[in-house]
Write a protein that binds this DNA or RNA. Structure first.
Length: 575
RNA sequence: GGCCCGGUAGCUCAGUCUGGAUAGAGCACCUGCCUUCUAAGCAGGUGGCCGAGGGUUCAAAUCCCUCCCGGGUCGCCA
């Protein structure tokens, strides 16, 4: 029985008591919706405030007492207490513990073939430079969102749009033409996306002094659109480099995709969609020839240009086609989640409105999950000032930190083992740092704090989890859920109360698109466990008690594993 | 100026959707705890007009209104 069933049971019990007292009941579902978890386990497992159904003129403290007197003990509830205006219910320990452990240990059902299909779009890089810490936030949110969807019984299709064309791409290309001298990532011994990125930086630097460069990039784009073989060959070569490097970074972050959409494949089709809308009279032509979508009146968002005055397409042009294509590719799609920075909120409102304007019925199934900008303690990251925190450098730096930590703590450990564990720990630190904060808020990326392994961090959770596994390894007993009724100490009840909330927390993390809710839950669980660990011996003489406690710590271990998995964080058996 | 998001301890953040029992963590600082299941840990202490003012309510960090501060965005960037 899950927590929810106990809540229902309490609501039914109170409802019956009200009936016996001839007091009108607000109804079982309503009573149930008011039930909360008391601030401390000393006050019971469940609590019902009586404010809302105390008859007018009656003192609610007395009213609560009156109801409690009417409540009879059942095999489920061993005690009721009136505490001020609250009715506190104590669930029979054995029944509660056993059912919570069983319920918590139950593995989530794998989504069936006919489960709802959800598309999650995330990452979406440009192929002119390597990923930065902002992309990492996007990836961490994407991985978590996708896994949460799966956990809650959906099939998930992971995708990205690779922005592989446009004037910014031509800038790196032009720079390579001018100063590349036939160099390659291999010849320079550089990660290939970083290699491409150096040319983008070169371009930006030179363009500050040489205005002609911008023009050259524009001309190059024109040639690219005209399929100029020389430009296309260079484009292909450099994009391969960029993409190869970017995918290496994805791999470290656990980002995988079922399908990649390329801007270069679809940008032309966007114009067809717009043209059709124009012919149908849905769009209008501006004086300079630009095609506009009128949205102000019907959708309360500002009008949007769809095609430039010179007939070239915009980002929105392809976004329209891409959405349609995705529903065409996967007609059974229930939902598309676009994980994109919240600075594009207006853009997506407009895109979804235009889709609706075009009579596209799936417009309502599109959702923009915006996340806040990643900034530095010193302010915004800037390419010009060279303050952009590069993803690979960051990952490398974290790993180096972890290695240094191991060399200090365990100098006798084999270097390859240090290497292996450090990789896992540093990635856990990074990923958890990126998801523990509310996605919609700006994230101040503090390098010192992100590499810290203490406190509210991924390594703290890994450490706690490893500690538990060590207990499970060293014990000669087997966990016994059947004996868990013996767990009556305060910390044990606190831990079980936390475990009882796990399912609700996970589904709430998904329904609010707030992975951080789960992150904070895991921290609280780990913290409470560590307190328990210091107070209580788990391996001891009384084998029955040991078996009961093993069931508790094993359940905590499973919840930590499950939670970390949902963040794409790998765990360690030993730390 | 319009719209969106923020403002909670010195710093970084939970809690706000769904009002309810003394407002919570982490970092930093101070004090303790490793011959006993992993000290990347634990316990204790210092630290708060929950941006301001009004309103609703038995009850407001939470709901409503006004204002202030910070960020984002607003027809041819992505």
């Amino acid at each position: 029985m899950a927590l929810l069933s106990f809540q229902k049971k309490l609501a039914e019990t109170v409802d019956a008591a009200l009936t016996q007292l001839n007091i009108p009941s607000p109804g079982i579902p309503t009573l149930q919706s008011w039930i909360t978890i008391p601030p401390s386990v000393e006050k019971g497992n469940l609590s019902l405030p009586v404010f809302r159904f105390t008859p007018k003129g009656e003192n609610w403290v007395l009213f609560a007492q009156k109801i409690v007197q009417q409540l009879t003990h059942t095999d489920v509830f061993e005690k009721f207490e009136a505490a001020g205006p609250y009715i506190n219910a104590f669930i029979s320990t054995a029944a509660f513990n056993v059912s919570i452990f069983e319920n918590t240990q139950k593995a989530p059902a794998l989504p069936l073939g006919d489960a709802p299909l959800v598309m999650v779009e995330y990452a979406s890089p440009n192929t002119n430079k390597p990923l930065h810490v902002g992309h990492l936030r996007n990836i961490a949110l994407g991985v978590s969102t996708a896994r949460l969807f799966e956990h809650e019984g959906n099939r998930v299709f992971r995708t990205q749009i690779i922005n592989d064309r446009g004037v910014h791409i031509c800038k790196s290309m032009r720079a390579y033409q001018k100063w590349g001298n036939g160099k390659t990532p291999e010849s320079e011994k550089m990660k290939s996306d970083h290699f491409v990125g150096t040319f983008y930086v070169d371009f930006t630097k030179h363009a500050e002094k040489d205005e002609k460069l911008e023009e050259e990039a524009q001309q190059m784009l024109l040639k690219w659109e005209q399929n100029d073989p020389v430009v296309r060959a260079l484009w292909k070569k450099m994009n391969e480099w960029a993409e190869k490097g970017i995918f290496e970074t994805y791999e470290k972050m656990g980002a995988v995709f079922d399908k990649n959409y390329y801007e270069s494949d679809i940008y032309l089709h966007g114009k067809e969609v717009v043209q059709k809308g124009l012919e149908e009279g849905l769009f209008v032509k501006a004086d300079n020839g630009a095609i506009m979508a009128p949205l102000e009146k019907k959708y309360k968002v500002t009008d949007k240009p769809l095609v430039r005055g010179d007939g070239t397409s915009l980002y929105v042009t392809q976004d329209l086609y891409l959405a349609m294509k995705r529903f065409e590719d996967f007609p059974q799609l229930e939902k598309i989640i676009y994980i994109v920075g919240s600075e594009q909120e207006m853009h997506f409102k407009q895109v979804f409105a235009i889709l609706d304007l075009l009579g596209f019925p799936q417009a309502k199934k599109c959702y923009h999950l915006g996340y806040g900008l990643v900034t530095l303690p010193s302010g915004k990251m800037s390419t010009r000032e060279g303050t952009v925190v590069n993803a690979d450098d960051l990952i490398q730096e974290l790993e180096t930190m972890a290695i240094a930590e191991y060399e200090k703590r365990s100098p006798e450990m084999a270097p390859n083992e240090i290497q292996r564990r450090s990789k896992v720990i540093s990635l856990a630190a990074l990923k958890f740092y990126l998801v523990k904060q509310d996605a919609k808020k700006e994230l101040v990326f503090n390098p010192q704090e992100s590499i810290s392994f203490e406190g509210q961090t991924g390594p703290y959770l890994l450490y706690t989890n490893a500690r538990i596994q060590s207990i499970l390894r060293k014990s000669l007993q087997k966990p016994s859920i059947a004996k868990s009724g013996m767990l009556i100490e305060k910390r044990e009840r606190e831990l079980i109360a936390l475990l009882s909330q796990k399912n609700e927390i996970v589904s709430s993390a998904l329904s609010h698109y707030s992975p951080h809710v789960l992150a904070h839950y895991l921290l609280e669980l780990a913290n409470t466990f560590n307190t328990y660990y210091h107070e209580t011996k788990i391996i001891q003489e009384n084998s029955e008690m040991e078996q009961a406690r093993l069931a508790l710590v094993q359940t905590i271990h499973l919840v930590l594993e499950e939670g970390l998995y949902l963040f794409g964080i790998e765990t360690l058996k030993e730390m």
